[in-house]
Design a protein around this nucleic acid. Structure first.
Lengths: 204, 204
DNA sequence: ATCTTTGTTAACCAAATGGTTAAACCATAA
DNA sequence: TTATGGTTTAACCATTTGGTTAACAAAGAT
């Protein structure tokens, strides 16, 4: 049995292979030939279906971004309390990334490489907004549920604590002198440790 | 008057230019010709002084890493209390990065691109260790100064909160709908906000 | 059966790129 | 003045790389 359901059509096989190579090596490091090899087809097919490296890359990037955006949307536009959001997001996000380990790095690197391109996505795609989250934080602060904190800073803190370890994995492995297995255990523990850490800090 | 003191010798000019280009575009995106142009010299000089792109890159990377390591060393091997460390590190690190905005991204991206290469640096260079920090956290927890927390998790939290915003700058600017100026103000506020956030969470 | 469209391949191409070379340049010591 | 040595340059080279082309195969359409 094949690994994915896209193995039938060439176009899907190309996209799968392109995801793999682009996410591991980035736009600059990726080679069209390598993508073709990984897909098991002729290099000309890449151009037949996607015209150019740039367009193939954009297909992969948009695809990746539309995986990540809904994750963030949960914490921004869900109706539960801040405390519940923090707990759920932390646990869910860490699980999610374990299945897409190259994703955060890929998105962040390519965003930095070409911020202009990213600005387009921001305009077009269903790009989450902070407004609701900020209001909610203010309200809970006023109601005495949370200690005073700025919504923007809290948002940055939450995504920092959750995303950074996956972006800087080799650095963390280096400092902690651990390998893949111990790293995974550590991230598993973080599902609770991070939300405790945040809640401890903000809850009255 | 020239901007740096290295403007005299060609070798220094090359390294300066290489830093610029490599840190902005990464190993794969950087072009030897562009480095030569930026240094205002002939491309052959790059090879005369550094033999190959790889060696020039390594010079730049080691240089960058040896800027970052001492920063982390402060929080790991300084003698002050955890609370003071957190306060000082947060404030110092954010100032430091404002002067080297491309640094964290560059290091993280290249570490991910080639973890093997990074393992060498770890062995050779003065690579900070977590041991002292972990002991210190345990002691302060036992002494009732801190709430119970795992030293490794705390370390990850501290560096996540401090480094991530500079790695994911375009993402944050996008979500918060702000430009460079407001971003800088936000980071300035973080010098206090982050250490408060951490201390609030861990101090008894 | 044959025509037409779509999909696929091998061979090819021009530009870009890391690296080399041989000659020129230039300061300094003999 | 003239060797001598390191430094710098323009021109060159081989390889890689994104992209194209022309021929061919498969599958519908007529």
């Amino acid at each position: 049995m094949a690994k994915t359901n896209k193995n039938q059509d060439t176009e899907g096989q190309i996209l799968d292979a392109a995801k793999d190579v682009f996410q591991k090596k980035g736009m600059d490091g990726a080679r069209m030939q390598e993508i073709a090899n990984e897909a098991g087809i002729n290099k000309a097919m890449l151009h037949y279906y996607y015209r150019s490296k740039q367009l193939l890359f954009e297909a992969v990037f948009n695809n990746a971004f539309s995986l990540l955006a809904p994750q963030l949307n949960k914490i921004l536009n869900d109706d539960s309390s801040i405390e519940d959001k923090v707990k759920n997001f932390t646990s869910n996000y860490i699980s999610f990334i374990s299945n897409h380990p190259y994703l955060p790095n890929f998105i962040i690197h390519e965003m930095n490489r070409n911020p202009k391109f990213f600005e387009n996505i921001q305009r077009n795609a269903a790009f989450p907004t902070l407004d609701k989250f900020k209001n909610q934080v203010s309200t809970e602060v006023e109601n005495g549920i949370l200690k005073p904190i700025d919504g923007e800073q809290l948002f940055i803190n939450i995504i920092s604590l959750n995303i950074f370890p996956f972006v800087a994995t080799p650095l963390i492995k280096g400092f902690l002198k651990i390998e893949e297995k111990a790293f995974k255990q550590l991230m598993e523990k973080r599902k609770i440790a991070v939300s405790e850490f945040i809640i401890n800090s903000i809850k009255k």
